[in-house]
Design a protein around this nucleic acid. Structure first.
Lengths: 339, 339
DNA sequence: CTGAAAGCGCTAACAA
DNA sequence: TTGTTAGCGCTTTCAG
């Protein structure tokens, strides 16, 4: 009762036709190659009967197409990336592609190793959140004309396809929202990495407070600091800046650190401070207070990424570079209301 | 400046040796096949020089090994699964395997489609959280002697490798913890699906309350209910069971629904009710109150899964079925302390 | 110790 | 309209 794999040759010999005929029929080229209806039907019926499935591997070897795309993010266990991954997965499978997910931890070395690994595997396309130092590797992919889309951030001076959100606009709006709600001393907690998206977020904040002539109160936390250290830094910051009445966390893990510090060290602040975070999480909705968040349009991002990718996958030539900028949405919850 | 792919043949002809020799050397069989040191070195040096990487696809076609394993969960965007995925990813890549993640939404049809898809791709092994109706499909894989490990849940009467946690023990302990903290009317909110893990959780709860002669107060929510409906059901439940002083949520999305309902409809309850949830989330720690949780040992689960998988991948014959049961850990936080 | 050659399953140019 | 055949790049048996 072992299920045995059938090959195209088996089919051909069983039906007394040639493998070519079978191959054409399987690949839907029956019409084009003008194979008789009768033969086509016979072959199709037989294929169905024995439940034949072409060996993808052989197909890939022959065509050079693996029907696999890579989706590389910082950390797949991070809520934001996991959500994206799920949506990408659904679209890809529907289109006959499989997705290899991987995490680069925002490290150049890891990113490069992973990309090298995938190149040996003839992956068809890459959707990547680049770590900051892999411009060279990305450029190589580009030079080799491999379908590639960056997202979340990109390299200013490299003509790549990318999908990002308007980070500056998003923080500008969110900061203005805080200002409208009468917060006067709004702190902005971010990291010290020079990633385009983080820089834009910072500049949106600066623009907003600048326009209203408020103080800039910025805390840059070293990217490589461990959670404990990050928390210590935030704690000091709170102690040293008692005038702060609202905090804008520029990315989700900083929000976690921040709330944790406040909860442990200054519990009364939790209801007094204005809080906004970048990137939503379903749990923020049921926090006490519920946390206002700048939410990236996940579906839209993934939809755009995949439709661009599929386009790239189709015709390899004369592609124009596409740069897409989407808008984030401010979800106003309790934490940013006037106190 | 195009990077061209080198083949084993190129190497052979460039060095005036045969492809066989090169192949043997590449595969570390130089010694075994007693190829001269000199040739070996020469080949190795050249390979290094041109940065040759074997074509995995061709290798796979020939050997039947794709070096890819499948990791199928309910929903990769779910915190628990995303965390697992990340750990699995790290181990797999280190061992030279790549991981295809996918989500079956706990649907049989989807699971079956996915498995069929992967079989055409000669995936080397499967790590699966099975949806309840795919026993047949799983059995097929088993019959074909394909490396397979189930986890989170399994089929009682199918001799498969699996890794699960002791769900009954975990809820028993956690319920006892509530009882020790003087909660008298502990409700257990679960789903109506007959999955082994959910049933065990329920029975652990029942055992605990039974031993102390407390009332069983169980709410089973239809698995397919939409969030809105789940919330409505929970709301009714709270209204109709005013005596309840503690709630044990059997899985993480129910916790979210539950807290959401409490927050919206009965905010004062949030600090009065004892709460425990199954499956941890980093954010529970910074909730107000922080939420006590039964945490599954993620690292241990993944470590076990992968070491079992690697063992299966190595020697295909005479494998004993391995059943591993690990222990969960109760993380006591504010929500389950005496009120 | 090394090489020739078959063949994994499929596609597609070329023949018939 | 259909068949023959040459590979894709690699592994491995068998023969030197």
């Amino acid at each position: 009762m072992k299920k045995q794999r059938h090959s195209i040759k088996d089919i051909a010999s069983a039906l007394n036709v040639s493998v070519t005929t079978v191959s054409f029929i399987i690949n839907g080229k029956a019409k084009e190659k003008r194979i008789s209806e009768k033969v086509t039907k016979k072959v199709l019926a037989y294929i169905d009967e024995i439940n034949y499935k072409p060996n993808q591997l052989a197909q890939s070897l022959r065509t050079g197409q693996s029907k696999i795309i890579v989706f590389m993010v910082e950390d797949i266990s991070n809520y934001f990336f996991a959500r994206l991954a799920r949506i990408i997965e659904d679209i890809a499978y529907e289109k006959g592609y499989k997705v290899l997910f991987c995490s680069n931890d925002n490290e150049d070395k890891k990113s490069e190793e992973l990309i090298a690994l995938f190149k040996d595997r003839q992956v068809d396309g890459y959707i990547i959140i680049p770590s900051s130092g892999i411009k060279g590797t990305i450029k190589n992919l580009l030079d080799e004309n491999i379908p590639l889309i960056l997202f979340d951030r990109y390299f200013e001076d490299l003509p790549t396809n990318y999908v990002v959100i308007d980070n500056e606009e998003a923080t500008l709006n969110a900061t203005n929202h805080l200002i409208e709600n009468k917060f006067k001393n709004i702190a902005f907690v971010t990291t010290d990495v020079e990633q385009t998206q983080m820089l834009s977020r910072l500049s949106g904040y600066k623009k907003a407070v600048g326009q209203k002539q408020l103080h800039e109160i910025v805390l840059k936390i070293p990217y490589n600091a461990k959670p404990v250290n990050r928390k210590a830094i935030i704690k000091d910051f709170i102690i040293n800046n008692p005038e702060v009445d609202a905090v804008f966390f520029a990315t989700n893990y900083l929000t976690q650190d921040g709330i944790s510090v406040i909860k442990e060290g200054f519990p009364s602040l939790l209801s007094k401070l204005g809080i906004i975070t970048f990137d939503d999480n379903t749990l923020y909705e049921i926090f006490t207070p519920s946390i206002s968040a700048v939410a990236q349009p996940l579906e839209e991002i993934c939809g755009t990424l995949m439709s661009m990718m599929l386009k790239l996958l189709k015709k390899k030539e004369d592609q124009k570079v596409e740069k897409v900028v989407l808008n984030a949405k401010l979800l106003v919850r309790e934490s940013s209301l006037p106190k």
